[in-house]
Amino acid sequence: MAKTLELHFDGERGLVKVAIRNPKDPLSPAEIKAAMEKMVQANIFTSANGDLVGVKSARLVDRNTQDIELL
């Protein structure tokens, strides 16, 4: 099972997405929002859509892989 935490920010020129593989579990919405706000304030990311200017949304993507035995 692979998990990815996707963080969506408003950039100067559009949406900026940051993906974090295998995030710490569990994470509360408050913890995620606080971390995102710190990222915006610290201005630590550069993207094609400019600097981060605001927090938009977050989602946890969970993907399961199942091997199939071929007979």
Rank of each mutant, 00 (worst) to 15 (best):
A58S: 11
A58F: 15
R21E: 15
L27T: 05
A42Q: 11
I32E: 09
L27Q: 08
G50D: 05
L15R: 15
L5G: 12
G11H: 04
E37F: 04
A19F: 13
A42R: 02
A42Y: 10
S47F: 02
I20T: 13
K38S: 11
R21G: 15
L27E: 08
N22S: 15
K17M: 15
M39Q: 00
A19P: 01
D25E: 14
I44Y: 05
L15F: 09
G50E: 06
K56Q: 14
K38Q: 12
L7T: 05
K38M: 04
A35M: 04
V18Y: 06
E37R: 10
E12L: 00
K38Y: 02
R13I: 01
R59W: 08
A42S: 12
R21L: 10
E37M: 00
S47E: 00
V55L: 07
P23F: 05
K33C: 03
E6D: 05
Q41G: 05
D51A: 13
M36L: 08
V18L: 03
V53R: 10
M36Q: 01
P26W: 09
L7I: 06
F45H: 02
A19C: 12
T46L: 12
A58I: 02
K38P: 06
R13W: 11
E12H: 00
E37I: 06
I44S: 10
L7A: 12
K33L: 06
K38A: 14
I44D: 03
N22E: 14
V55S: 00
A30H: 11
H8L: 14
D25S: 11
I20E: 12
A48D: 13
G50T: 07
I32N: 00
P29H: 00
G14F: 03
S28A: 07
L27K: 06
G50L: 08
S47G: 09
V16R: 03
L5I: 05
G11I: 04
I32L: 12
A19D: 14
Q41A: 15
D51N: 09
V16H: 01
E12C: 07
D51M: 11
M39K: 06
G11S: 09
D51E: 15
V55A: 10
A30D: 09
V16A: 01
T4H: 02
M36Y: 04
R21T: 13
G14E: 11
A42D: 14
A34R: 02
N22Y: 09
